[in-house]
Design a protein around this nucleic acid. Sequence first.
DNA 1: GTCTATACCCTGATAGAC
DNA 2: GTCTATCAGGGTATAGAC
Lengths: 198, 198
Amino acid sequence: MEPTDTRSRLVLAAMQLFWEKGYNSTSIADVLQTAKVNSGSLYHFFPGKSDLLAAVLDMYHDGIRQMLLQPAWAGVKDPIDKIFALLGRYRCPIGSLALELHEPDEPVRERLAKNFRAWIDAIDDCLQQAKVRLPAGVTRRELAQFVLTTMEGGVMQARTFRDVSYFDAGVRQLHHYINGLARAPTTSAIVKKRQLRQ
Amino acid sequence: MEPTDTRSRLVLAAMQLFWEKGYNSTSIADVLQTAKVNSGSLYHFFPGKSDLLAAVLDMYHDGIRQMLLQPAWAGVKDPIDKIFALLGRYRCPIGSLALELHEPDEPVRERLAKNFRAWIDAIDDCLQQAKVRLPAGVTRRELAQFVLTTMEGGVMQARTFRDVSYFDAGVRQLHHYINGLARAPTTSAIVKKRQLRQ
DNA sequence: GTCTATACCCTGATAGAC
DNA sequence: GTCTATCAGGGTATAGAC
């Protein structure tokens, strides 16, 4: 398993192409050409195209911490800020794939869901850390899902209008919402005082 | 132009199939079979498949008031309630198409945007009617966009998780957000009093 | 405007030698 | 594990008589 063995080259090429052109518009031939691999080799590793997609989704999932969260959160302490650091940097690449596939086969669908869940978990963690600043009535998990909803919906609108500001506007609204919910970052001592006051 | 002329049958069949199976997974042959039309006739009316899609999108756009807004708003007076009546009933059929097409040609993209804009306009109208109940700082248009963002993002998540409750959860969060912004429905007299008080 | 037949291409996938 | 050559099928679109 060298850094550029055949299988890896295939998955990497597929990842890139699926991202750039979408799944349907990427042909096996495209992947072979980009990866500089021959047809026979691809089918040695993968039974078919959708298995290649599954491998790509696995790679996304496995890399989420190291490749996405860590760099986005470098130097960011406040958990709420972390959420928006994430939104500021990424437009969840999985989302485009998720809707492009109208009825994905089960292995693929599972992996899409697994990726979504990983994003929601990451945001949920942030909210958990900001727990004391959130009012009691807030369903944390649901709010975490809502962050992802905003991200996905924003991506879709931005793409259709060919204008990223639609994405930004969605994030701004979400920020407004969460700011309205959460108290400003404070030390736990101050928070406790506030809680007592209510 | 009878009610079931060839062209209409084609557009209607395409609309139905694009909705059920998606655009890519619907073949021309599928459309022909459903519409009970022959290949030659289709190409007499439409240069190609994407032109058929454009016609479908036009039909969606032209029907938005009569077929979507009117039935959803029957008996609903409060403008904020109208927004959620819409969300309660529809899952914006255009959204699925919008992301399925990774890079739609310009005529199609324009029509997708036009449809989105029509939805945003409808929601914007509601917000406009509820204007006095919204705080001054709210960017109305952006909030209207955000409603659509929630809708689209919710559709995507619900589909991936194969669970509509993800959509419902998004709507609930949005409701929570807007409730936090808007004052309760009141007569204009009371509203005026409140405004004076501030 | 409608019909049948069909061209033509690109797709995913396979065969089988090396 | 890798290579070349190739298949079978379905896709969009066309031809040309009626």
